[in-house]
Design a protein around this nucleic acid. Structure first.
Length: 422
RNA sequence: GUGGGUGUAGCUCAGUUGGUUAGAGCACCUGGUUGUGGCCCAGGAGGUCGUGGGUUCAAAUCCCAUCACUCACCCCA
């Protein structure tokens, strides 16, 4: 029989590692709170159709990376490969538009894509993201980018990342541009790769994404989308850039930035980092003014981004981020079996006062327990043995100062109130 | 899906041209006299050498397959 082990591209998050996750998650929650964004939690699987319609059928995600299966009743289900479609589905389903004309939401959780694993890429991975509905004004775009910037600043890595931004135009712009692009490419159609031929039919903009050198040459003289912006598109993009300037958020305009999901309109952006290897995008997003409607809702503009938790952690690790230490306050040593009850009840009382208390469960020697206390880097050790038991005392040892006191068990809190709280 | 690299103890790695009971450091456990940590010293536990075949008198070492990890392509977070 095969060894039972985790599935390719999935990882266990072990103790100590999980503490880093918790730290990062706390900072994410705090950031979202600061901007008034509320958490939304949606199911981990959805009807396959949602992603086909939401993300786009010719995207890589949908065409080759989804974990899909047929349920017993014949319905086609899929483990979510991204979260925007799910959030939009929920927004429509619960009529959140009627609850408030502008909704600000964030999410965090696992996603699934069947790709070949590499640095910063797994089959189960985690994203944090925000989505805002209701406003098509540039201040909304900037609010979204600000959240990302604020988070990266809190993490101390805002100077280690680059913001790339572009506008891919409104519907009208893209309609005109699409036509111009098709006209331009048509004479060279036979020279295109198979992938690009499909994109030519379904989503010609993505042909610009090609890494194929021959196609890059062909496309070098292709019409530029920026020449097809409407006046509103121009103003919208310019205003965003102006606002970013006000906030001192540095950016690079990248006219080649298209992004691989079909639902984007106008603003697209990406934060990249060079400590991530080839998968250098750690956060990406954009505006999706058609998506709510495409999925059966009213005409509601939206914008959001998603950040890879694993990739954030990779950068934090590379930048030697100072994660919070989770050390116990007190290590309780009991070297007299008749004193176990006393240790248990004193520990309970200490925990009620919010002290983190741990103790040995193997009835090991004093020396062994002292070693462990030292290894845990706790500051205070409490000892109860025969002596202490007989006189209702407890020995308190300060491992840092290397001094030791004897206290009445009933006075224990006086010591800690004084030592730790003051 | 395609290509390169790598799989020996919990971790980082040695292992000579195939040749006895497969090693080191760190970590772990127990001690170093009666109830006291870090440093030091001594001892101990821990490995079907990723897995399955093959070649050979003999395989961690050579060959094949397979699985996993890793890096890159594609694409994305």
């Amino acid at each position: 029989m095969d060894k039972i082990q985790s599935i390719k591209g999935t990882h266990d998050i072990l103790p100590y590692e999980s503490e880093k996750w918790k730290d990062l998650e706390d900072i994410i929650y705090k950031t979202c709170d600061l901007f008034g964004f509320k958490e939304i939690r949606t199911p981990i699987f959805e009807k396959t159709n949602l992603f086909l319609r939401g993300i786009g059928e010719v995207t890589d995600i949908v065409s080759k990376e989804m974990y899909s299966w047929q349920d017993r009743d014949g319905s086609n289900l899929t483990l979510r490969p991204e979260l925007t479609a799910s959030v939009v589905r929920s927004y429509i389903q619960h009529n959140l538009k009627n609850q408030s004309s502008s909704q600000r939401l964030f999410y965090m959780g696992p996603l699934f894509r069947r790709e070949r694993p590499q640095k910063g890429r797994q089959r189960q991975f985690h994203q944090f993201g925000v989505e805002a509905f209701g406003s098509e004004n540039p201040e909304q775009d900037v609010e979204i980018i600000s959240i990302a910037w604020h988070l990266l600043s809190l993490l101390g890595i805002s100077n280690k990342v680059q913001l790339k931004i572009n506008s891919i135009g409104s519907n009208e712009c893209r309609k005109n541009y699409r036509k111009a692009l098709l006209d331009f490419i048509k004479p060279n159609f036979n020279l295109l790769s198979e992938v690009s031929k499909v994109r030519f039919e379904k989503n010609p903009l993505r042909i610009l994404d090609t890494k194929n050198p021959k196609e890059i040459t062909i496309l070098s003289d292709a019409p530029k989308i920026s020449d097809y912006y409407t006046n509103e598109d121009k103003t919208h993009f310019q205003t965003i850039l102006k606002f970013l300037g006000c906030l001192n958020i540095p950016y690079n305009i990248d006219l080649g930035l298209v992004r691989g999901l079909d639902y984007y309109t106008r603003t697209v952006f990406e934060f990249t980092s060079n400590s991530l290897g080839a998968q250098d995008a750690l956060l990406g997003g954009g505006r999706y003014d058609n998506l709510v409607q495409d999925l059966g809702g009213k005409v509601v503009p939206g914008i959001g981004f998603a950040a890879g938790i694993e990739r954030l952690l990779l950068i934090l690790e590379a930048e030697k981020y100072n994660f919070k230490k989770h050390t116990p306050d007190i290590y309780f040593i009991c070297i007299e079996q008749n004193a176990i009850q006393v240790m248990l009840s004193l520990s309970k009382k200490l925990r009620e006062k919010n002290y983190i208390v741990v103790f040995d469960l193997l009835r090991r020697s004093l020396k062994a327990q002292m070693r462990e206390a030292n290894r845990f880097k706790v500051r205070y050790v409490l000892i109860i043995g025969q002596e202490e038991l007989a006189h209702k005392k407890v020995t308190i040892k300060d491992l840092q100062k290397k001094v030791q006191y004897s206290y009445n068990q009933s006075d224990l809190f006086d010591f800690f109130n004084f030592k730790i709280n003051s």
